[in-house]
Nucleic acid binder design. Structure first.
Lengths: 186, 186
DNA sequence: GTCTATAGTTCGATAGAC
DNA sequence: GTCTATCGAACTATAGAC
C-alpha cells in the first residue's frame, strides 16, 4: 500500500507491532495460562503471524517473561499503624484495577515454574519488609498470613470470580481493611 | 507367571491397578496441573501402561474428574460464634494435611475450566451456608472474604509454599483464627 | 504400537521503507 | 539498490486416542 507520506517510519511501525503482540500476550496468558496460550493465538489477536512473534521475542518462554513481569510495589516501612495503612492502600489498588501482567503471572504460576518464581520473588520481597517492622515472635507468620490474604483476595476477585468478591473495592476493603490492621498491629 | 493359588482374583487385581492409577493421577495432577500431566507419566508411575489407563477410565478428562473430585465439607450452621468455631475447625484440617484430590483440583482450576467449576461449586456451597447465617447487609461480602482467606491460606501453604506459611497448623491458626471470628461475628 | 492433531520453531520469499 | 518488517509454508516433537 502506497502512502502519501511516511506517517509511520519503520522503527515506529515495528514498535507498534511489538506492543500489540505484548498486549495480546498478556491478555491471553492471563485468561488461559501459559500452556494453553499458543503463539498462533497471540499472533492472530495481535493481527500478526507466528513467525514474527518468534523473530521479535525469540521464544514463547522469553515472550512470557516480558509479558508477565510483575511491577514492584513501593517500599513499605514505618510503625505498625503506618504499615497497615500502606498495606490497605496497596491492596485497594490491586482490587480496583486488573494489572494484566501480574494476573498473567498469577494464573501461570500454578503450572509454570518460572512464573511461580516470579510471583514468589515479588511476594517474598514485600513480606520481608513487613516482617522486619513487626514485633513479636510470630512476626514471620503474621506477614505470611498478610501475603496469603492478599493473594487470596486478588485471585478470588480477578481470576476465580468468587461469589461476593465482585463488590466495589470500597466495600471489600471495609471488610478486609480491619483484618490487615489486626495483622499488622498484632 | 503361574501362581500356586489364586491369592488375588482377577477383579481384585483390577481394583488394585485402578487404585494405583488413581493415586498416581492425583499426585501428578496435583504437582503439575492438568495439561502437563501426561497419560504416559501416570501409567509409568502406576507401573502400568497408557493403553490400560485409557481402557479403565475412558479419557484423560474422565480420569481427571475422578481424581480431582473434592470431598464435600460438613454442613455449617448455628450462631455466628458457632459458625466461627466450625470455620476454624475446617480450616485447621485443611492446613494440617494435604488433601490430594483437592490440591489437584486447585492447581488445575486456573487452566482447566472443568476444574474451576468443581472448585467454585464446592466453595459457593460453603459460602451460601455461611452467608445465610450471618447478619448485616454485608453478609455476602464477608462470606466471600472468608472464602478468599481460606483459599489464600491453602494455596499459599500447599501450592506456593510461601515464606512463613510452613509453620505448624496451630501457629497459623493462632493468627488466622481470630480473623475468621471477626469475619463471622461482624 | 500406530494414527493423527496440535503447537513451537525455522526458513525462504515478498514488498515497502530508506 | 539495499534493508528489514512481514508473512506463509513446512519441519519436528509431543501426546491423546484407538
Amino acid at each position: 500500500m502506497r502512502r502519501l507520506r511516511a506517517v509511520t517510519t519503520r522503527v515506529e511501525q515495528r514498535r507498534r507491532t511489538e506492543t500489540r503482540i505484548l498486549t495480546a500476550a498478556r491478555q491471553l496468558f492471563g485468561e488461559q495460562g501459559f500452556d494453553r496460550t499458543t503463539i498462533r493465538a497471540i499472533a492472530t489477536r495481535a493481527g500478526s503471524d507466528p513467525g514474527l512473534v518468534m523473530r521479535y521475542f525469540g521464544s514463547k518462554e522469553k515472550l512470557f517473561a516480558q509479558a508477565a513481569a510483575i511491577p514492584a510495589d513501593g517500599p513499605i516501612e514505618g510503625s505498625p499503624e503506618q504499615i497497615a495503612e500502606q498495606l490497605v492502600a496497596a491492596l485497594t489498588e490491586k482490587l480496583a484495577d486488573e494489572p494484566a501482567a501480574a494476573l498473567a503471572a498469577l494464573r501461570a504460576m500454578f503450572t509454570h515454574p518460572e512464573a511461580a518464581e516470579e510471583v514468589r520473588a515479588a511476594m517474598t520481597a514485600q513480606q520481608r519488609q513487613v516482617a522486619a517492622q513487626l514485633s513479636g515472635d510470630d512476626a514471620l507468620v503474621r506477614s505470611g498470613v498478610i501475603g496469603a490474604l492478599t493473594l487470596g483476595l486478588v485471585i478470588s476477585r480477578h481470576l476465580v470470580r468468587l461469589d461476593g468478591l465482585d463488590a466495589s473495592p470500597e466495600e471489600l476493603m471495609a471488610v478486609a481493611g480491619p483484618l490487615l490492621e489486626k495483622l499488622a498491629t498484632g
